[in-house]
Amino acid sequence: MVNPNDIKLWIEQGLERAQVDIEGDGQHFSAVIVCPDFSGKSRIQQHQMVYQALGERMKSQIHALSMRTLTPDQWAKEQGEDPE
């Protein structure tokens, strides 16, 4: 069974400057991925970059991965908007 840290590692290996925050129950995972390489890319391209980082594992081991992809600016803005 896949644990969230495996996925975090795989994504960070494939997308060097990515920061990944992930939860999951072994079957369903949800991740927030912040990466400067996302800037200027459409949402689809951003998600495809993550899928490429995960490669074949996306087909075999990961059944349900829901994700939000953000550039560092978007993340900072979002953090700024809802004070902890």
């Binding site: 949402r43 998600h47 495809q48 899928y51 087909k59």
Partner: peptide
């Protein structure tokens, strides 16, 4: 669509995305 999952939504011939992107949009 070189997209590894289903569902996949297409509008006017354009690939829009999977469930996450459809929700965000």
């Amino acid at each position: 669509s070189s997209w590894p999952t289903v569902p996949q939504l297409y509008i006017d011939g354009e690939f829009i995305g999977g469930s996450d992107i459809v929700m965000e949009m």
